[in-house]
């Protein structure tokens, strides 16, 4: 027990139990659905998880700083449509340029949110509830309710979802899923070991203290929203590649799945605790549920009800169970310290 407490933190126990829950869910669906353990199922889940994960990484940074970004679905929709119509109009545009256009447009939209939250001191829920409506409105007006269609897109975008990055056994790891994992690894390292990354945690744990020790609190909040916007832009491009047909309704409601992934993944809604890796686990859990319920055909109509319940349980278990565990850990630390002092 003491070994456990010395080497594992309560937050890690939470992530491990989520991992266990995912395994249980996969086994459960595997026993109900014929031919569940195939590379086709894996790819279908991975394609959905990849998009949610990329946005969830940005959302994690925002939630860490005690904010929330509800505009990610609208940003992804805008960038998917805009990048799609650019690529359709100019077939000779290099792939990297299309991706950069999407990311840059997302970053600008995120920056607008960030300025209003950090310097305008408007609560993030208000700003992003507003920009959720405004960005979607701009998209509908700009597009004139027209649709980007698959056959108008250059071939490289249409083929991208089936592009395989590496093959392990008979599992093909697609390039888009590999990209999502790479982003998670990059941001996990950044937030664990780099100064700029730790600042997000400092800001979320105690904004006043962060300000007093001289951290640029406003710039931290701003960069969280900027990154969230940029990653949503990237996700918008992935959305374009995955579906090809982009209507003005593209990615509507994505914010709910993403916030669900982040909260289920153990990122505290009060800020200051949680990891990018946890958010990815949350995304995998939600992607698995979504795609498997779809296969089960007890109707996709159950999806939202289960998602809502999952968020509630995640938040409640954080508040009730995790707080007890933290207290237990703190007591043991205290015991160890006093014993060390008593011994000569």
């Amino acid at each position: 027990m003491r070994w456990l407490q010395r080497n594992i933190r309560p937050e890690q126990i939470r992530e491990l139990s989520l991992l266990l829950l995912i395994v249980v869910a996969v086994l459960f669906f595997g026993s109900l659905i014929d031919g569940y353990y195939t590379s086709r199922t894996f790819n279908r889940i991975a394609a959905s998880v990849a998009i949610i994960t990329v946005v969830a990484v940005g959302q994690t940074l925002v939630v860490l700083t005690r904010s929330i970004d509800l505009s990610v679905g609208s940003i992804a929709g805008c960038t998917a449509y805009f990048a799609g119509s650019m690529a359709a109009a100019h077939h000779d545009l290099p792939p990297l340029a299309v991706v950069l256009i999407a990311v840059a447009l997302g970053a600008v939209m995120g920056a607008i949110n960030g300025v209003l939250v950090a310097w305008g001191r408007v609560p993030s829920i208000i700003v992003t509830l507003g920009s959720l409506a405004i960005y979607r409105g701009i998209l509908i007006d700009y597009s004139g309710a027209k649709t980007v269609t698959t056959d108008s897109l250059p071939a490289w975008i249409v083929d991208l979802p089936r592009l395989t990055f590496v093959t392990i056994g008979n599992l093909d790891i697609r390039a888009m899923f590999a990209l999502a994992v790479a982003i998670v690894v990059l941001f996990q390292i950044g937030t664990s070991f780099l100064n700029v990354g730790r600042q997000f945690y400092a800001m979320g744990s105690n904004p006043d203290a962060a300000h007093l020790i001289g951290l640029p609190t406003r710039r931290i909040v701003f960069s969280a929203f900027l990154l969230s916007g940029a990653l949503s832009g990237l996700a918008g491009f992935m959305f374009l590649a995955r579906f090809g047909n982009i209507t003005v309704e593209a990615a509507r409601g994505l914010e709910l799945q993403v916030v669900a992934a982040v909260v289920v993944g153990g990122v505290n809604i009060f800020g200051g605790s949680g990891t990018v890796f946890g958010a990815m686990l949350g995304a995998i859990m939600i992607g698995t549920l979504e795609q498997s319920l779809f296969r089960l055909q007890i109707s996709e109509f159950w999806r939202d009800a289960i998602l809502g319940l999952l968020i509630l349980l995640a938040v409640a278990s954080d508040a009730v169970i995790l707080d007890r565990l933290r207290a237990l850990w703190a007591r043991t630390d205290l015991k160890l310290v006093t014993r060390a002092e008593a011994e000569p």
Binding site: A260, W302, D304, L307, G308, L309
Partner: peptide
């Protein structure tokens, strides 16, 4: 959670 769940 209610926004998602009740709609569900």
């Amino acid at each position: 959670a209610g926004l998602i769940g009740y709609r569900g």
